[in-house]
């Protein structure tokens, strides 16, 4: 696995390639600058500036209540549709374009920056195939021939095709938890996102299903930029290239405490609080 010693902005990374970018390699970078978010009067995160490197997996870890889910939901403007008078301040950039800029359509943002949630949530009344293209239909795909191609491509990318190709018209709810989660990943991929956000995608899955999702993520990062919130420290250590550690202070406001290459964060964290969390001394 390629490990960058430091964050490389996508522009530099691509200009460093001697050959033209191969088809399908996207390499979209995100970053936040001084990102803060509130639920009503209660601030949840404060001033988080974090790079999310292209074609890499960035893990966001931290104890419960540190704001990591809030943070990731700000990355595709989902925080603002959360109940509880949500508010966001600061900047989020996708390829240096501000996604909170006036005139930016939040629906388009969520198409480019897909999200997979903790609990697999396929549409129970829809078939497996219909689940895959549910979001894709909404953004304007409808030709039948093309549709079959999209279903197959996405299920293959989500490493689910071989398991479901003979029952594409059965209900999505008939699948196991791990399969359902991969179905949700296929659904997220159908709208051709540039970035995949994953909010504890394995916490409801058994170890075998978890390892399948992890293998899948390692393959997906060749095409997509991935940020994952996880409670599972070993998972972050196993699959991510970069790790960000968030921690809430006594004021219950989450802040970025440590960020760096995963191999360094997990062997030699700079911050005492990150060390204590990673070694299990608190949290």
């Amino acid at each position: 696995m390629v490990r960058h010693s430091e964050f490389t902005p996508s522009g530099d990374a691509r200009s460093a390639l001697a050959e033209p970018e191969p088809l399908g390699v996207r390499g979209h970078a995100m970053r936040t600058a001084q990102l803060s978010a509130w639920y009503g009067a209660q601030q949840a995160i404060d001033g988080i500036s974090l790079p999310i490197a292209p074609n890499r997996i960035t893990a966001i870890i931290g104890p419960s209540g540190c704001g990591k889910s809030t943070f990731i939901r700000c990355l595709n403007r989902m925080h603002e549709v959360t109940p509880g008078s949500p508010r966001v301040n600061g900047h989020v950039y996708l390829d240096e374009q501000e996604i909170y800029a006036p005139g930016v359509d939040p629906v388009r943002v969520r198409r480019l920056i897909g999200m997979v949630f903790q609990k697999p949530n396929p549409f129970p009344a829809m078939s497996i195939a219909d689940n895959v293209v549910a979001g894709w239909r909404l953004v304007g795909g409808y030709r039948q021939k093309n549709l079959d191609e999209v279903v197959e491509r996405c299920l293959r990318e989500a490493a689910l095709w071989d398991e479901v190709k003979d029952k594409l018209h059965q209900s999505g709810a008939s699948l196991s938890g791990g399969q359902q989660q991969r179905l949700c990943i296929a659904r997220a991929l159908a709208v051709e996102p540039e970035v995949l956000l994953m909010d504890e995608p394995c916490s409801a899955l058994d170890p075998v299903a978890t390892f399948k999702i992890e293998d899948l993520m390692l393959r997906l990062k060749e095409r997509y930029t991935i940020a994952i919130v996880t409670h599972n420290m070993q998972q972050a250590a196993r699959i991510s290239d970069y790790t960000a550690f968030l921690l809430a202070g006594d004021d219950r406001v989450g802040r970025l405490v440590e960020y760096g290459p995963t191999s360094e964060v997990f062997t030699n964290p700079r911050d005492r609080r990150a060390e204590d969390y990673i070694t299990g001394r608190f949290g």
Partner: peptide, 9 residues
């Protein structure tokens, strides 16, 4: 126990 960080070292 999967020691991490200073414990791992």
């Amino acid at each position: 126990q999967q020691p991490m960080a200073s414990d791992l070292r």
